[in-house]
Design a protein around this nucleic acid. Structure first.
Lengths: 163, 163
DNA sequence: ACGCGATAGTTGGCTAGCCAAGTAATTTGG
DNA sequence: CCAAATTACTTGGCTAGCCAACTATCGCGT
């Protein structure tokens, strides 16, 4: 039965917590993807739309900073979303390098489906957790994120302390 | 500064826990990828190798079941790993459909680098966590995984209760 | 025995995501 | 005032990952 703690090769012992996070990522992302497919979106597109719901007519560069994905990934995702009519891009007046991203009516119409998708996802996510556990999980997640970002920031330039 | 709880559009409120997991996934996977790059592996390949460290000469189908990825994804990953000399595949004697996957010396040599990578990853992951928090996080992760797998199992065939 | 279904893998086609290199426009500096 | 650096974005090239469709082989049942 492929449940909790499946047949884990011994080597995974050294990274039990990371392995759990890894498995959680796969399951969570997979479930989100299946929910997104039902509303006709590809993973990641919902993030772009949600940021646009918060503030429309946004330069592509700001979306980039908010979402944290590679510029090329965003560029291509936006092109595809434009192709299916979710949004429009047009060069800014004041700076012709800048592309302003604007939702179409079709894009705006995704607001409720996306919110419903998050509700469903979070409901399932918390189904086996006590409220306090959910709270702790969230807090621990951000603690880990902070540790990772700090580690990446420090020894990205000068790789690793030379032992 | 993009730390914990960054500028989260209001819409994310409905899925706070899921959004935290999502962000954790991105950060954790990104850091793992950067560590893997240093030892010349692509994400996912380390899992294949680790399962082979546990049991070599394994049919591709068993690897498939252990790892839980799509058959086509595994097929192509194995081909690429064979191309760079990490492993070899040859048809089984008794059943010519089956491909037996075997590590090469070069593949076996990855054992220590991969273990070191997991140690590094888990060290960073736990850096901001008390031991009890790490334990709780692991437990919560598997609880969420179980809920998601159950949800996927139940309403994948008959999509959603019709309201 | 023979055909049909199940099983094992592969290939095609698509998106997400990364890095590296390239283009265009704007800002900075000598 | 014009060249050099910077910024904004795109394109090329690659891997991971999914689904769908296909091939080949094996096993089963009539």
């Amino acid at each position: 039965m492929p449940h909790a703690e499946p047949s884990v090769p011994d080597a995974f012992d050294v990274g039990r917590v990371s392995y759990a996070i890894f498995q959680l990522s796969v399951a969570h992302k997979g479930y989100a993807a299946s929910l997104l497919r039902r509303i006709g979106l590809h993973p990641g597109q919902e993030l772009i739309l949600m940021h646009l719901f918060s503030r429309d007519d946004q330069p592509q560069s700001e979306l980039l900073a908010s979402i944290g994905v590679d510029a090329s990934t965003l560029s291509r995702a936006l092109r595809r979303m434009q192709d299916v009519g979710l949004l429009v891009r047009e060069p800014a007046e004041h700076d012709r390098r800048v592309m302003i991203v604007r939702l179409t009516d079709k894009g705006r119409a995704m607001r409720e489906p996306i919110a419903a998708m998050w509700r469903d996802l979070d409901e399932v996510t918390q189904r086996n957790l006590a409220p306090q556990q959910a709270e702790d999980l969230t807090r621990a997640a951000y603690a880990v994120i902070e540790a990772i970002e700090h580690a990446a920031r420090t020894h990205e330039p000068g790789d690793e302390e030379p032992r």
